[in-house]
Design a protein around this nucleic acid. Structure first.
Length: 306
DNA sequence: AAGACGAAAGTGGTTGA
DNA sequence: TCAACAACTTTCGTCTT
């Protein structure tokens, strides 16, 4: 990041300077501050004992988007500091603390609320930390670009989470997000599209295979059936049966077929429920699979083996 | 009686003029 | 901006096990 900057964007001069203590990167010619949240890349020392920790420690917790100020803010008047002071001094810090609170802009307050909501939804869905981090980043960008205006904060949170899940290839369905956040499915879809488009976040169409493990475990299918379903999906993708179709429908249909072949039959309704599609869709995809991949004989054979 | 099947009409979003 | 369109859903009657 730092190395990338060679010229001042204001005056074009290459005469730049670092100020490590202020964390600033400035142009010596015109004084333009190019980067004011610079990260110190210098040698990291380990600490041994109190004396060294005073001298050597210079970094805090890792920067994270799941805190509204990326975990880098300074809170004035934390207890541990304040109680070492005289009463008069202490009052001064309480006053400063109050002001700090007032100064927090609307954006920051919105972020605080939103990130709390995000935490709630993502833990309900048991999403990994990396996804939550990504979602928080997307949300922060949305707020900064004024995309939340005119839409509920919750729906943007849900949209950001949905996008983050897809980027990490552990897609959740809109229904699941809707269930976890209490926002209407269509609303989430709308904000998701709006946000990703406005921020030009590129997201590949989700791969049906990514849905298999989760659906299979909800249906209590064996690993053998699961990998059979993946096989079928790969063949289906080669036969170009997957493009333009809803990925959940295809995933559900191939699971249904592989369950039949392994004598672990589940009803169309059961499969449809966990995949969040209707029986009709499964039927349509299922028939296509049988027809195009010539699986009919395979299914028949394994049924006769009973 | 439950599950599978298929037809027909409806829904929400995309696309192309 | 509007109409055509593809995918998917809802609903419902019929067939199969």
């Amino acid at each position: 990041m730092i190395q990338a900057i060679k010229k001042c964007p204001e005056c074009g001069s290459a005469n730049l300077s670092h100020n490590k203590e202020l964390g600033e990167f400035t142009c010596k010619s015109c004084g333009f501050v190019i980067e004011d949240r610079m990260i110190d890349f210098s040698q990291e020392w380990r600490e041994f004992g109190h004396e060294q920790s005073e001298k050597r420690r210079r970094a805090g917790a890792p920067s994270t988007f799941t805190k509204f100020d990326r975990g880098m803010g300074t809170d004035i008047g934390q207890r541990s500091d304040v109680y070492q002071l005289q009463a008069k001094e202490r009052n001064k810090y309480f006053r400063l603390r109050k002001w700090q609170h007032r100064i927090s802009t609307a954006i920051e307050r919105n972020l605080k609320l939103a990130l709390a909501e995000m935490k709630r939804v993502s833990s309900y869905l048991k999403l990994p930390g990396a996804v939550e981090e990504e979602a928080a980043r997307i949300y922060t960008l949305s707020v900064q670009n004024g995309l939340v205006r005119g839409r509920s904060m919750e729906s943007v949170v849900a949209g950001a989470l949905y996008a983050a899940c897809r980027r990490h290839e552990i897609p959740r369905t809109l229904d699941e997000l809707s269930d976890a956040s209490g926002i209407d499915k269509k609303e989430i879809g709308r904000t998701y599209r709006f946000v990703t488009r406005s921020l030009s976040i590129r997201i590949l169409p989700s791969n049906p295979i990514d849905y298999i493990p989760r659906f299979a475990s909800s249906l209590k299918l064996t690993p053998a059936t699961q990998s059979k379903a993946v096989d079928i999906l790969e063949k289906a993708q080669k036969a170009e049966l997957t493009s333009g179709r809803g990925p959940t429908g295809i995933a559900a249909a191939s699971l249904y077929v592989s369950a039949l072949m392994n004598n672990e039959k589940r009803t169309q309704r059961e499969v449809a429920d966990v995949a969040g599609v209707t029986e009709v869709t499964i039927r349509n995809r299922y028939k296509e699979l049988l027809r195009e991949l010539n699986l009919k004989d395979e299914v028949k054979k394994s049924m006769e083996d009973d």
